[in-house]
Simulated scan of single mutants.
Amino acid sequence: MAAPNYGYEKRQKELAKKKKKEEKLRDKAQRKLSPSSDGLAPGDPETDVASLENEPPTVPSLPTKNG
């Protein structure tokens, strides 16, 4: 029976890991170049960026020391 070649297995694992990382970076760069509106409903104030830019955020007034 042949002895297991652990060096070969390790190298294959490293290559697979490197390939997966490159694919992830490529996908991330692709999303950055052409963002899609997955999960965003147009007109929804919570997810619509345009509505957030037009309306200032509401901040509750804080009580002051004088009253």
Rank of each mutant, 00 (worst) to 15 (best):
P42Y: 01
D27M: 06
L33E: 14
E14M: 14
M1Q: 06
G43N: 04
L62K: 15
K20D: 05
L52A: 15
D48M: 01
Q12M: 13
P35H: 03
K17A: 12
Q30C: 04
V49D: 03
N66Q: 07
K10C: 11
M1I: 09
G39F: 05
N66Y: 08
P57E: 11
N5A: 06
P45R: 03
R11I: 03
Q30F: 03
K32H: 02
L15K: 13
P56T: 02
K13G: 12
Q12L: 08
L52Q: 15
P4L: 07
Q12K: 13
V59F: 10
R11N: 11
E23Q: 13
P63W: 00
A2T: 11
D27A: 06
T58Q: 13
P35R: 02
V59S: 04
E23G: 05
V59I: 15
S61D: 10
S61T: 12
K18F: 03
K18V: 03
P56I: 02
A50F: 13
K19D: 07
E53M: 14
K10T: 04
K18Y: 03
D38E: 12
K13C: 07
P35N: 06
D44A: 11
N5L: 04
P4V: 01
N54G: 07
R31Q: 09
D44F: 01
S36F: 01
D38G: 05
K10S: 09
N54W: 10
L25H: 05
P42D: 02
Q30M: 09
K32N: 10
P45F: 06
R31S: 04
E55G: 02
K20G: 02
T58K: 13
K21F: 03
P60M: 06
P60F: 03
P60K: 10
E14N: 13
K32M: 08
Q30T: 09
K19L: 12
E14T: 11
Q30V: 09
G39Y: 02
P56F: 03
N66H: 08
A3E: 13
E55N: 15
E46D: 15
P60H: 06
G67F: 01
A16F: 08
M1V: 10
E9D: 08
